[in-house]
Write a protein that binds this DNA or RNA. Structure first.
Lengths: 147, 147
DNA sequence: CTAGATGCTTAATCCAATCAAGCATCTATC
DNA sequence: GATAGATGCTTGATTGGATTAAGCATCTAG
């Protein structure tokens, strides 16, 4: 299990609650991924493939190097979860798509990752709206490392 | 940069807001760690060392294998950020402590990791209380992978 | 036609995580 | 006491993620 990313000594209740929530979210995600033989990175990449997309584009969206994507996609391809199609117009480029296997597996993963669903279900409609507003307001003005 | 752990296609506003928040939090943490030459795991471990603590205890708290801690601590020790003291009563055991260097560096890291502080500062006292209550309520009943 | 940009891959390196073994030490029991 | 098993930690091996530098093929602007 990955190590939790957050301070242990939060100075306020709010910081503590944020950390606890983030930690629970991350752990739930990792657990769900492992249940389906996926790493966190693999699950995340698989989840992005709702449409054909190039390697470069994928790397930009995920904020990491293209060579990183290369190896993640290779591992997914070996398991027949994705396929790399030639780009119709640009022979340098590949279009990545999920295979039916990949789509099925990802659906199963999402079913396992019930964290956000459960968390949402614990709140009334009004509370959900409140939470959304508060989270967005809290985010406002925080530094965004990569766009 | 690590890949974001979360679904891209969130089915509700609330899920989307949760993911955005978690993603921003994780990225801010990683960025702050990198600014001080620390990995996420290293920053996290360093943050736990507010008291003397054994390797076993550390591994349990972080929910990972003891051998994982061994190597993380070794890298921190090489940089004189932590020290491994013999346990007074049990010669198998080590007590890990931060060196003054480690304490200084971690303080600087925490200063850089302003995400939770800024996010909190964006909210009034009343809103903070609301957020804490909502986050805790949302967490209630979600599966807890490791206690 | 060519210089440079672009899309991707490969190889090398570092770190994190996990597993299986192993050593030293401790503890409970005989 | 002796010893069997538990405990604390380390080591080595393996897997995977992330980054960097280098390289190839292709595209595009001039």
């Amino acid at each position: 299990m990955a190590v939790p990313s957050g301070p242990v000594t939060a100075s306020t209740d709010a910081e503590r609650a944020m950390f606890d929530f983030v930690d629970a979210y991350d752990r739930a995600y990792e657990t769900a991924a492992l249940e389906h033989g996926l790493s966190v990175a693999q699950a995340c990449v698989l989840g992005r493939l709702t449409r054909q997309i190039g390697m470069r584009e994928l790397a930009d969206e995920l904020g990491c190097d293209a060579s990183n994507i290369t190896q993640i996609i290779r591992r997914l391809e070996v398991r027949d979860l994705v396929r790399r199609l030639p780009h119709p117009d640009d022979r340098r480029s590949r279009q990545i798509v999920r295979t039916p296997n990949g789509t099925t597996l990802y659906a199963a993963f999402e079913e396992s990752f019930e964290f956000a669903r459960s968390a949402t279900a614990n709140l009334s409609a009004g509370e959900q709206d409140q939470l959304v507003a508060l989270l967005r307001k809290a985010l406002n003005g925080t530094r965004k490392p990569n766009g």
